[in-house]
Design a protein around this nucleic acid. Sequence first.
DNA 1: GTCTATATTGTGATAGAC
DNA 2: GTCTATCACAATATAGAC
Lengths: 212, 212
Amino acid sequence: MFAVVSSNRMAKQTAKKADISTEEKIKEAARKVFTQKGYAATRTRDIAEEAGINLALLNYYFRSKEKLFEIVILEKMQILLGKLGPALMDERTSLEQKVEQIAEHYIDTLIANPDIPLFVLGEIRNHPDKFADMIRTKTKIVDSAMFKQIAERRPDIDPLHFIFNMLGLIIFPFIGKPLLQLVAGITADHAVTLMNERKQLIKKWFSAMIHA
Amino acid sequence: MFAVVSSNRMAKQTAKKADISTEEKIKEAARKVFTQKGYAATRTRDIAEEAGINLALLNYYFRSKEKLFEIVILEKMQILLGKLGPALMDERTSLEQKVEQIAEHYIDTLIANPDIPLFVLGEIRNHPDKFADMIRTKTKIVDSAMFKQIAERRPDIDPLHFIFNMLGLIIFPFIGKPLLQLVAGITADHAVTLMNERKQLIKKWFSAMIHA
DNA sequence: GTCTATATTGTGATAGAC
DNA sequence: GTCTATCACAATATAGAC
């Protein structure tokens, strides 16, 4: 079900520098359209048009909409979750260092890929069991070093609260941005400025919360 | 485009107590299916089946999938945003009171309707312009009393950060729940317990952050 | 008001020429 | 490898009997 089908064809062209293969053009278009609209609202014709190629080529290279989708969402899940597990597990860093490191990494990542959280969470909702195994193996919060470090500091509060808090402070502004731009009337530029400010602020806020 | 079509037919039955009208059965089914899967992934047949009626009746009562959807999502947006504006605008409550009041109200609301945030935010993403006007008129954060109260306390930090923080602490756990249940291995019951704990905790955390 | 049957359109996928 | 044309089926919506 999750076999990787990526380079099942080798583009013949000798890659004359700046021009990319058709396969990659399709994949790049798929990344854009799928993450912006989600699987169900995306038509293969949208992807073909975005890629500037014909619909038939999509099936020629990737066989089906679903196969192409799996490639894209696995990439995006890797971006969203790939660094989280290792960061939480790291035995050598302090709690404060972990928060700083995670906040910096993910805010930079999400500024570059602001659609990912809503996309990934929405698709998990729509295909509940499809990703269960993969995710479960990827990150085990409860066994993590960070979980234990929190528990030592605040034995009176479930450590999960602080994991929620950290992730919420980092991720929520990106998920709520479409709405918050309307409600708060901020520009795209201002939004980026705010997100960058948060890299330092979250560290301070987290410390304040865990001492409160 | 947004005319309310709700009761365009009057069910003939005298509403023999516990049984509800067909129109309401369809609407209730639509609430459930739309919020769980989103507009694009929902088939009218899913709704008809969930309602225990025939597909034709859906069009008889609501004329189209889109009309039915508009009714549902306007309801859900009202639930998600209806109390926020007034709470932010309230000139008589302190900052701390606002946070407590908003956290309590929304956590209770979201425990009862956990699918709403992901649903509403996802549909705003997929129909960017459709809801712009309605939302803009509903809540103007920057003019709000809460915005000014925050600015007085912390003239050094953009007040929007603290609005993000409050909303993120409240809403994110519900958006991330599908993922976090996998990653953190928590049961549905435990999740509700955690959310209820947060009603009190968020108040304390917010105060800690604004003093940090 | 409710149903079955059907019309109509939308969408993923393939055939076959070049 | 790439295209046009088309197929096959899924999904929305309607007609018409009861």
